[in-house]
Every structure is written in C-alpha cells, then in structure tokens.
Design a protein around this nucleic acid. Structure first.
Lengths: 192, 192
DNA sequence: GTTCTTTCTTGATATAAATCAAGTTTTGGT
DNA sequence: ACCAAAACTTGATTTATATCAAGAAAGAAC
C-alpha cells in the first residue's frame, strides 16, 4: 500500500502540487484491490463505481458490437484505469474492463472522489488535466485508425511499445489495431 | 455580442453555476470574432491561442496525413470550437480549423482563461467537465470507426444529424465518416 | 449570363484486409 | 504429465471499399 501510494503520488505530482493536508485527505480515500487473471473488473451496462491506479498487472478496455469485442486500450503498472465516462457521469458503461494478468493496485470510489473535487481546487484541476490527457490520447488513436493502414499501425506499435507484445495476447492487439487476428499474424511473420 | 453571451451563458450554466461576480469576470475576457467563408482559423503547427464559441456558421476540424485531409469534426452555432489539445497544452497543433461558411462568435485567449481557472474553482470545474464531454464524444467516434461499416456510419449520420447534409459539402462528410467521396455518393444514391 | 473551377456522379477495375477452413502450437486444469 | 481448450499460423477465397477515369452538375468569378 505504501509503495503504491508513492507511485501514485509521483504520477499526481507530475501535473499538480497538493500540499500535505490535501495529499493526506486524498490518500485516505484510496483502497487496495487485487484481482485474478481474466477477472471482469467492470461489466458492460454497469455504472463504474471506481477509478483505478494499477501497481502491478494489465487491464484491457473494450466494447462489444454484434457480439464481437473491440479493444480500445490497455493499462499497465503505474497508470490509471477505469471506464472514465461511466465513472464521471455515473451512467451505464458502454465499455468493459478485464484483467489480462493478476492485477493489483488501489482505487477510489466516485462518492469519495467527488467531495475532494468540491473541497480542494487542486484535485479539481487534477481531474481537468487527467481528462485532457485522455482526450489527447484518444485524438492520437483516432488519427491512427482513420489515416494509417493496418501495416503502419502494426509497425508503429512495434516501434513505440514493443513490451506490449509480451504482455498482451496478440488477438487482443489485433483488435486494438482494428485488424483481424490473421492479418496481425501475417504482419508479425513479415517483420520478424 | 449581448446575444452571443446569453447563448454562452446558457451553455455554461448547463454544467456549472457561477455567481454574478464570477460570471462578470468570465464574460469580460471574451472578444468577438468574425471570419469569411473558407478562412483558416487555426493553422497546422501553430499554437492555438483561442478557445471559440460559435454564434453563427460552421467550422471544420481536420488533420493531414500524406497530403490528404481527414475531418474529425464540425462545430456549429451554439457550440464550442478550437484545437483543444494545442490550446490546453500550448503546443503546436496537429489539427487545423477552417470555416465552411461565414462564421462569427466570441473567443477567449489562453492567457485570459488560465487566470480564471486559477482564481475561480467554478471555471476549473467547467474546464474539467468540458474536457469530459469531448472525451465522451471521441469515445463514440472511435466506436463508430472501429466497429461500424461505412454504410452503418452513413445511416447513423443520416438519422442523427440530417441537417448536416445541408451545411457541409459531402466530400467533407465522406472524409469525416472515413470513406471516399465516391463511396459516399453511392450510398447517398441508395438511400434516396 | 458565360466561363472556369470545384464538386458530385457513375462505371470499371484493383486491392487491402476479412472470412473461411484446417492444421499447429501453446496454455491451463486436474 | 496428460488432456482439453484456447491461441496462433497458413493458405485459399471473398468482399467491401478504394482507386482510376471521364462526364455532369453546381457554384464562383468576371
């Protein structure tokens, strides 16, 4: 718990500077969690009660259309996770979260975070800047799926996140890149 | 100017409730703008200095890859516009903005908005919730381009925003939906 | 109102990537 | 260690959509 909080503190302090009292109030509301591999963290249609910070493990986020799963992202140790829109708006989720490995970390309840936003300006700002960073990431993702070919997307992932190939089953990476598992496999063969 | 401010006030008050003094400080910083048709509002690579609120007209946002333009969205009267990530982070823009019609409204400078965020918690929150709404919209857009066929995307647009067909040239709508102008034209024929 | 430019349409052809299918390898459970 | 299930590979085939091309319609400029 101590160690995770330090990871989180580093992450938070990279964008805002709460004082001791504020940080105290903040940390008090986070609770540890721990899930097995392949645990459904958030169900489709459920209202997301938590905002997560991962200490160890990988979580994938996806949605379902006509019975098919589409991955929209993965979260790793040292990163946040959660179904952000469902969490923030407290409305049923269009997305689901699932662990790909044993995963542990800390999380905070919506009803514990909102009072922090109300009371402390610094966390309201943290919330704004967090949303902003997600927004920027989505923008990059959109550019990639609109303008790049399957091969370009594959190569970019290879270049920028080679570690991901060890952590995430390739059928999920294929889905994340918007291509079939077969196409992914063929590209992998080509570049190896 | 009076009228636009009322439009903006309605928009702002739908998510936060500034008091008179706060609202006063806020409105003072907005200035009117007016552009001809086909005016480049924000250039690629430029740092976005403004955040816009449109009173009349249409602005399209796009990026360029290998010389080809890709539309990512349109903003109409009563809506915000701007290159949000470049504005918020004050870094060179990956996107450009251009008017599709004569367009007017009001805008606020980055350097005028930030002090409002610093001074008034209510606007910090407005910023957070604004980012959140953009994030949600991007999520919907991502789902659509990943999971839907060209035809489904076309039909959804037809259903949800029929007015757009009058306002936006169809080559731009085609690009927005991630299909060629020819494919768009053929679908249009089919459903008419 | 005529001309020039841009946008839109329509048909023919090409192609990237999906789907189908069947085998192989890897992983997980007991 | 063995068996079952899941994940991955590879080839053959299909398909949605892009690209190419050339004419028609609409809008802008003078």
């Amino acid at each position: 718990m101590e160690e995770v909080l330090q990871q989180l503190e580093k992450k938070v302090r990279s964008i805002v500077q709460p004082n001791d009292q504020e940080w105290q109030a903040f940390t008090q509301k986070w609770r540890p969690f721990s899930f097995d591999k392949n645990h459904r963290v958030t169900e489709l249609g459920e209202v997301e009660p938590y905002f997560y910070f991962i200490s160890e493990g990988v979580i994938r986020g996806y949605f379902i259309k006509n019975g098919e799963e589409f991955n929209i992202g993965f979260s790793y140790h040292g990163e946040y996770s959660g179904v952000y829109d469902s969490f923030m708006l407290q409305k049923p989720s269009q997305y689901a979260l699932e662990t790909l490995t044993e995963t542990s970390g800390i999380r905070i309840k919506y009803h514990d975070l909102m009072p922090l936003f109300d009371q402390y300006k610094v966390f309201e700002r943290w919330g704004r800047l967090f949303n902003q960073s997600v927004l920027v990431g989505f923008g990059v993702f959109i550019q990639s799926i609109l303008a790049d070919s399957a091969e370009e997307r594959f190569n970019r992932l290879m270049d920028q996140s080679p570690h991901i190939f060890q952590l995430v089953p390739q059928k999920h990476l294929a889905s994340y890149l918007g291509m079939s598992a077969e196409t992914f496999s063929r590209m992998r063969k080509k570049t190896m």
